[in-house]
Design a protein around this nucleic acid. Structure first.
Lengths: 341, 341
DNA sequence: TTGTAAGCGTTATCAC
DNA sequence: GTGATAACGCTTACAA
């Protein structure tokens, strides 16, 4: 254990060069004679020298730290998505600094905490609508990328799933399968993604369905998670309205519904109901559910977000961008691909 | 958008005090007249002043950043556990910097990346055995807490689940339920936790089972995940050895097994087999599985890890500690609590 | 209680 | 191509 970590000055002495030469040696764009560079590297290696990011940050005014702001990691989709973001951030040579803002009371405090670290950028993922969290960072000159958020910022870059179309795809699939009594389910507490998905679902039906034959209803569940779906099943199955096709705006709500339904009604009855989820979380492909779903391509979205941030760092003053990523229908057993006759 | 973020010098001018007084005002331990402190706070508020952590880090030689090193966030337990750690880190006024070391090739590079940030500490969670990752940090004077790792470091603090006892608890529960043909399943690729759990399971049987009646076998699956369990089911159910009680060293392996079993054999047959998992991931309580399991109290472990780190920061030279957290049996439907007669 | 001044370890701007 | 030297924004003796 070293008493004090080696500094570039230490390396300089050992290599017999000036401290600034050491610094330059680690900058690939600096023209340094190959001989001295090798001498510096050798000395650095010997001393276990590592750049001090704090000092570097002070002068460069950016830390290569990327804040990942998320809410509620107990949600499996968010958790899986955060993972994708972390991997992407790392692969860009940046460091992820995660901030969980589940506890609404401390948001402000936490935000300031992040700003102190001279972040290179912040990626804010889906959360409760219109918090305008992004503004705070932009005010401090920190580039912001918003993902699946309602904020119509004209300063932040935006990457969204085409949520409305995702809902439309679900509607289209149900219609194609000959379903007529349709239902869309989402959480009481509105989230940008769910609201847009439900809207897209209903709009598609309104414009494409035969109004004499097709009915559509909307049901809200208490929570946007497994338990929410589990609890709402009784309400749905006991109601006078008998749906034969249901779109759940989040996969785990669908999973909760399916589990409850298995206990409430016969397997045959459940099979006759077409069920579509949204997101394609890991759970969806497990055989217990084998859920047909509208996939949110989270890797692609994560990649797009990082690329956007990188571009922004290169040209800080260019106009904000907005990207929309397409969803993709994944057929599994809860709604089969209709046979072509 | 400010051209330049406000510094303590700016605040000083506005408040009509010296720069060092501003600095002191934000230190609760500094004795400052209440009047000037309020004046400083007002000026700081007005300018939107935020401490520059980079500068602070340089002088204090610690960043209040905590590295969370983990492998494979696609594993639901790791992912859930990381979430707990993030929340704990935040609640201690520290910042989590996550590092995913799934990609073994880049570990070294990534490690150095972390060291550059003058981390206050590093928490390393379960991964592949004996990487000795911890040593690298300790060499640079960064406190390390190891969680569920095999490393017998005499420099790092350690927090472990009592994995061996967790296995023993599973064995005890199966014996109590009258099961006689037992099986323990874990992944081919050894992990500290799984190896110890299996060992505890078998040891308990060896010392507590009636050897004339009780049989025990060990089966390895290809991967320590859902698919591993799904694939190994055929092998288990087709074998000549007919187990009536199985302990899976990880919940998601058990879930994969259950799903496959439902397709391979009758529901009655499955019910007759007692199944116990380990960890108690979120999935375990879902009705599709309703898995009896040995719970790893991850919140408790996360809290212990952070408390350990905080203690270490206070007294850097005290002897390394080692804590063992107890597991807890959670009865659900795959193995019922035996009725007391 | 407050102000002055000396660093912390880099990068960037000059000269040479 | 390389070496001085001046910041960067903060904390912390040391003075007053």
């Amino acid at each position: 254990m070293n008493k004090r970590n080696a500094t570039s000055a230490d390396v300089a002495i050992l290599a017999g060069v000036s401290q600034s030469t050491v610094s330059r040696s680690f900058d690939p764009d600096s023209r340094i004679s190959e001989a001295t560079r090798q001498r510096v590297f050798a000395a650095a290696e010997q001393l276990g020298y590592q750049v001090n990011k704090a000092a570097q940050t002070m002068i460069r005014k950016r830390s290569d730290l990327v804040g990942l702001v998320t809410a509620g990691l107990e949600d499996p989709f968010r958790s899986e998505f955060l993972h994708k973001l972390i991997v992407e951030v790392q692969s860009c040579g940046l460091r992820p600094m995660v901030m969980d803002v589940s506890d609404r009371q401390t948001i402000d405090e936490e935000l300031h905490g992040l700003i102190q670290y001279q972040l290179s950028g912040v990626i804010i993922t889906s959360g409760t609508p219109s918090e305008n969290i992004g503004k705070a960072f932009i005010k401090y000159g920190i580039p912001v990328v918003l993902i699946n958020r309602t904020e119509h910022s004209d300063e932040a870059d935006i990457v969204n799933l085409d949520n409305e179309n995702a809902g439309a795809m679900a509607a289209e699939a149900l219609l194609k399968s000959g379903k007529t009594n349709l239902l869309v389910v989402h959480a009481k507490k509105p989230s940008f993604s769910s609201v847009m998905r439900a809207k897209g679902f209903l709009n598609y039906l309104a414009s494409h369905g035969n109004h004499n034959e097709i009915q559509a209803n909307e049901v809200l569940c208490e929570a946007g998670n497994y338990d929410g779906g589990y609890q709402v099943a009784k309400k749905i199955l006991a109601s006078a309205y008998k749906p034969d096709g249901i779109f759940f705006c989040m996969d785990h709500i669908a999973c909760g519904f399916l589990d409850a339904a298995k206990q409430l009604v016969s397997a045959k009855k459940i099979e006759s109901i077409g069920v579509i989820g949204c997101d394609d979380i890991a759970l969806a492909r497990f055989k217990a559910y084998d859920l047909t779903t509208v996939k949110q391509p989270s890797s692609e979205i994560a990649k797009a977000a990082l690329q956007t941030l990188l571009n922004r760092l290169k040209s800080p003053t260019s106009a904000p961008t907005k990207q929309t990523i397409s969803a993709e229908l994944v057929y599994r057993s809860t709604l089969s691909l209709p046979q072509i006759k």
